[in-house]
Design a protein around this nucleic acid. Sequence first.
RNA 1: GCCCGGGUGGUGGAACCGGUAGACACAAGGGACUUAAAAUCCCUCGGGGAGACCCGUGCGGGUUCGAAUCCCGCCCCGGGCACCA
Length: 825
Amino acid sequence: MEERYDFKVIERKWRLRWDEADIYASRGEEGATERYILVMFPYPSGPAHIGHVANYNLGDVLARYMRRKGVNVLHPMGWDGFGLPAENAAIRSGVHPAEYTWKNIALLKEGLKRLGYSYDWSRELATCSPDYYRWTQWLFLKFYEKGLAYKTRAWANWCPSCRTVLANEQVIDGLCERCDSVVEQKALNQWFFRITDYAERLLEDMGKLSGWPESVLTMQRNWIGRSEGCEVAFRIKETGREIPVFTTRPDTLWGVTFFLLAPEHPLVDEIIAGTPYEEDVKEFRERLSGVSDMERTAMEAEKDGAFLGTHAVNPVNGEEVPVWTANFVLMEYGTGAVMAVPAHDQRDFEFARKYDLPVRVVIQPPDTALEPESMTEAYVEPGSMINSGEFNGLDSERGRLEDIPDLLGERGWGERTVNYRLRDWLISRQRYWGAPIPVVYCPKCGTVPVPEEDLPVLLPEDVEFEFEGPSPLERSDGFRRTGCPRCGGEAERETDTMDTFVDSSWYYMRFACPGDDEAALDEEEVSYWLPVDQYIGGIEHAILHLLYSRFFTKVLKDLDLVDFDEPFTNLLCQGMVVMGGAKMSKSKGNVITPDQFIESYGADTLRLFILFLGPPEADKEWSESGIDGAHRFLHRVWRLVDRYLGVLTFKTQPVPEESESLKILSHLTHKTVKKVTEDIERFAFNTAIAAIMEFTNGLYRVMEETRGAFNTLEGHEAIRSLVLLLAPFAPFIAEELWDELGGDFSVHQRPWPEYDPLLARAERITMVAQVNGKVRDRIEVGADIPEEEMERLALASPRIRKNLEGKAVSKVIVVPGKLVNIVAR
RNA sequence: GCCCGGGUGGUGGAACCGGUAGACACAAGGGACUUAAAAUCCCUCGGGGAGACCCGUGCGGGUUCGAAUCCCGCCCCGGGCACCA
């Protein structure tokens, strides 16, 4: 055996052996259970960085562990290939997005391979490959057939000087990142997926997601934002036109003193056209350009608005109230209109104060009487209804939930309804590097979906990339001009591509049958592997990606393409590796690559070090101090095994005079196997590694005290267990040591070690004696000491007795096997 | 702003269900070995105190025999906010 731990030689050697022997291929063997372990696939923005290592370590440890528990494991890897950065690179440096992307995929793949991850590479896929996006397009057609894809006008960020649509990321403080022009909102006809049709099921089925972190479920629940209330029809006095509003507070209907429309509301233009108010409203809208929804609706935001010169009629009392437009009313929420009740809504209150609009109290708190003049903020709690005609004196909660909705229904003024904060999913992108939306517009036949047999609609190669002006697809005549699939006449293709979230909403299913060119999904394969048993990914995906994937799964279930309705049974959200307090990302320029560390320490050290940094869920501030420690530890293991290698190849012989050492060895071994197994099961990889370190330290201690203790069955078991336990964390060195120990190839295919609970259990424990909750003594006792004996020992302790002087014992609390607390006054 | 997390030694973290705060490491200091260095090994390592002990898990309160852990209020940091992925 080599004296030195030559990680470079070892890692090169085993990487090749594993490839040749194809030991990580997923096999659907009969009889065994299957587990699908998946880490969110990466966007290939460049070579691997430390954040990737932190992510993919987790899946790899789990996959390696599960395989050795005798489970059929699917652990694949692929690439989220489409996206904005590739297109930006094309604009900047003239490199085609495909070239940029495939080059980065190659870099990233090599990086992951160097780290020794146990992927089944035969299932590799890339969303930007025509074999894949063909099926993304096919799924779009299925959505379209089901009425779940539709086109409508929607707002997009628009830079007037570059004449181009901007992503939110390209808008910096309301300005174009390129030319600093103020970004406007432009209405475009765009494609949507009707995710709101699934709002209720997305909420309900969260009950099935007991394997998800509660925080993620809460975030999704809040995102969907279900609220029960009423839709009430107000009427424009001057035109008679009805405008519905959504309210969760029908009990405050009598307190409406004005009416608000979103600035983008189509009726606003209709109302002000040709009136003296047109100018004011235009100025107001001007002030809003470049201001995000978030800023507009912030509680602190200065209320801003304009009178529209018209009035709305309140159905419950026939009152005519002025109609305004206001910055905090959003077109996307509810109906884009608000019945303003300044006395009982804070934003309405501030608006009323600013524009000197009337405030009328209709809910009276139980203890005081509110006066509009003296109010400094809105009263939003329940109370009793006043100034509300026949409902005066009614409990407002009852009014809100029962009497008023009933009244609205009976009189035909409105109805109970449920409103969601969730909006339909805008999937249109006016960009090149995405899956083209497979639709053709024919002057005669209208919107015609591309026939399935004509898929994929390929991205044209000969296009030019410029920041300014329309997207490359729109400018490509060769792409745009086509024949109508229905009538054969001249027609135009849709030039929008799909949001990359569409690609990533179904990739985990495609891993079951990545090469299938007959269908998007192979029924048998998908049904065998899916749903994903353990999904792992960054908390930053808690809402969008995970919600879209859940939505896709439900649609595919309804289309009878899959037999499950939730895609991810268990979810582990890991924290981010941050640097200087910010998420590591290429756009922030704070990326650290693993290569330099692999070069000087080896992949095993880097894997171990990052896993040892802390629990998966926690954010980790990157610092390389400590990596020496991880390396030193592997060296220590190396030397330990090295030193005893000779011994282990001889026959074992009993060492009766050293039986105490053997007992310690057995205990250490079984205790560690138990601890590491339990820690892996709960994803506590950092403490699993700490346990292996302690085990190693313990073995050194035994070795120093009792030479020859390893020349026994117990000694062999200890050394073997050490290597077997280390294998999922540091696969290369473990393979090498296993090989040197004479074990059969591969250590990664050996069964996971079992432990004997009796041997794992400590014989002696330290019992704590407290007085009034403060530790006063520690007493070593047998592990199975009875409670009465614990109490007796504690009370007999001289230190305890000293502390009890002059006090009367009122109570003694005994926690079996742990502590005794004596309560004394 | 809203929603979701987090805050423990000089540092990363441990303490899993309310029961010994600081496991395991890093850094630092001291020592052994060495001509020397590296490597390795040993010791010290939250603060105060000679000690008995006292203080200590972002801050202020509370519940409890007992709180890093539960509750209320506050401060700070991170993630998401629908076209970054």
